[in-house]
């Protein structure tokens, strides 16, 4: 049977151009090699698979916003309820300093960003484990999975920003030129979140107690960052130490841009440097551990 198939092929190729018309390219499309200690980020591959990224994101969004009202409501409610609690106890009863800005909008701005960080870091840390069935069956750059998860939370952030707009109108906040830098801080916080999400995701594949530790760490992180208070309560001589936390510079910067307050450049620049270093480090760790995901997940 197989020989007759070969004969048939030979026959076809005699009369017409070869039926197997596909040209074999000179360069391999895929090179399969053992893992190296330093894997490079393949930008061409990421670009070729951008539709995969889109699909992964779109699927999560679809599930979330299926019942539009409830989906969007939950995304808005989470930062709002927390703001309410802090506004009553910290802003109202304890009179925590808030840079001269009404406490509710002061806290909501930061809690909006914090909710994004906290949710995105948690869900992207779990993303590889929950997508194990894909990882063990088909190949695509695994980086797209946690990245898409962060992307989904970024959409949530945009939805929840509608409340911020309402608050801006309500408190009659006068926007200045500094608001132009607000998107920059959103990008920076997304980069920081992606860095931590990648790290969490790769660790979670191997060590399953990461999911237990993360919420605790996140809670601590929230209170060492200027989210429900202004960083002015930190003594000036300790500001330098305080700014090592990149979230401090980002949150302060975002608030300064919204309320048109002077930027504290040292802490902003520190946050950019630390965020970028963390992102490079996380991508490196992720690419190194990526090779083992299918065997370990």
């Amino acid at each position: 049977m197989s020989t007759s198939l070969n004969d048939a092929k030979a026959l076809i190729s005699d009369v017409s151009p070869p039926a197997w018309y596909r040209q074999v390219p000179a360069e391999p499309v895929t090179r399969i090699r053992p893992s190296k200690s330093w894997e490079h980020l393949d930008f061409a591959e990421l670009w070729a698979q951008r539709e995969v990224f889109y699909f992964l994101m779109w699927r999560d969004l679809k599930v979330r916003y299926k019942q539009t009202i409830i989906g969007a409501a939950w995304v808005i409610l989470q930062p709002m309820l927390i703001t309410l609690v802090f506004a009553v106890f910290l802003g109202g009863l304890m009179r925590v300093p808030s840079d001269g800005v009404p406490y509710p909008i002061f806290a909501y701005t930061a809690l909006l960003l914090w909710t994004f960080v906290s949710n995105a870091v948690l869900s992207s840390s779990y993303s590889l484990v929950t997508n194990a069935h894909l990882i063990t069956r088909v190949y695509f750059s695994r980086l797209l999975i946690p990245a898409a998860t962060v992307g989904v939370r970024l959409v949530d952030l945009v939805v929840a920003s509608l409340v911020l707009v309402a608050l801006i109108v309500y408190y009659d906040v006068h926007l200045g030129w500094r608001i132009l830098l607000f998107p920059f801080f959103v990008i920076e916080i997304a980069a920081l979140t992606l860095a931590l999400g990648l790290l969490g995701a790769s660790l979670n594949v191997r060590y399953r107690d990461v999911g237990t530790v993360l919420p605790i760490l996140l809670q601590v992180w929230m209170f060492v960052s200027p989210i429900v208070y202004a960083s002015t309560i930190v003594p000036p001589r300790l500001r330098f130490v305080y700014a090592i936390n990149p979230l401090a510079g980002i949150i302060e910067g975002a608030r300064s841009s919204l309320f048109n307050l002077p930027f504290r450049w040292p802490s902003i620049i520190t946050s950019v440097v630390i965020t970028l270093s963390m992102l490079i480090f996380s991508i490196h760790v992720f690419l190194r551990m990526e090779n083992g995901f299918a065997d370990e997940v």
């Binding site: 596909r22 074999v24 390219p25 360069e27 391999p28 499309v29 895929t30 090179r31 399969i32 090699r33 053992p34 893992s35 990882i135 063990t136 069956r137 088909v138 190949y139 090779n291 299918a294 065997d295």
Partner: peptide
């Protein structure tokens, strides 16, 4: 290995085309 689900420990392979699996 050829589908790139897992990497080889040693050796190499080159694929000169799009792979469906």
């Amino acid at each position: 290995i050829l589908a790139r689900i897992t990497k080889p420990t040693v050796g190499k392979a080159d694929l000169y085309g799009r792979t469906g699996s």
